[in-house]
Write a protein that binds this DNA or RNA. Structure first.
Lengths: 130, 130
DNA sequence: CACATTACTTTGTCTGTCAAGGTACTATGG
DNA sequence: CCATAGTACCTTGACAGACAAAGTAATGTG
């Protein structure tokens, strides 16, 4: 392969990724772990240690709250719920990501916004379906 | 503003950014510093300490080589030149960035590739200029 | 009955960024 | 003539996030 997502490229995004999963509804650690792998199309695994570290951080910042599930049988599950503050934090982080993408495209690829480029290519060259 | 590029969002990209500047030709520390600010459209400043740390790292990995300029008057300047290895490293890093962008768009925005989306919108809704 | 899976968690290490501090020279306005 | 800003280089130490490694404990399966 050769093309992977390094630790450094993911850094600073884990909180946002977790909050995004919780926007779909309450969930617990191990399920969130699996959902992230699935969401990425099996391209990325957020390690468990990273995940639980992030839970502590997000709880402390009141972006999420936790409660134990009432599983009578089987192992206990700790559920997490997105708070209003967490929702706001997510919204701001998505804006930051979109902004960072544009700036990094300039700095790495000397590119304008990729959407704009796609548009320009279309308007100049007409629509070619593959 | 509120929308800025945090340390964590840039982490892992500084080497690539520097190598990209050097693709345009040899340059020295302070000039590279200024060029990066300009390239970003004054949206991002790569701090000098970070820059010089990166130079040491990139030299050690043989991605760049350095030599003193022959300024007879004025302060001395240390120039950096991109090596073949550095060029390869840059090429791989851009692939990684493009890949990471796609995966992160899925994980943060639940989105497919933004280019694909732009295309889909166009094909469905027709071309609306602004 | 061993092994995989579910489910939770902590500790210590590593690495990149950058604030803070430093040196030295040049140009400019008061 | 001197203070200040700008050019140009550099190092050290602090900090924070990711994660390997290690652990607990239950359930399911071959």
């Amino acid at each position: 392969m050769g093309t992977t997502i390094s630790t450094d490229l993911i850094r600073g995004h884990t909180d946002t990724i977790i909050l995004n999963v919780l926007r779909q509804g309450d969930s617990y650690g191990y399920e969130i772990y699996k959902k992230i792998i699935a969401l990425s199309g099996n391209q990325y695994e957020l390690k468990e240690a990273t995940l639980y570290t992030a839970f502590r951080r997000l709880e402390q910042e009141e972006c999420i709250v936790s409660y134990w599930g009432d599983e009578t049988q089987g192992g206990r599950r700790k559920y997490y719920r997105l708070t209003d503050k967490g929702q706001e934090f997510y919204a701001q982080n998505t804006k930051d990501w979109i902004f960072a993408k544009e700036v990094l495209d300039k700095l790495i690829l000397n590119e304008l916004n990729s959407d704009k480029l796609a548009l320009e290519n279309l308007l100049e060259g007409g629509i070619n379906n593959e």
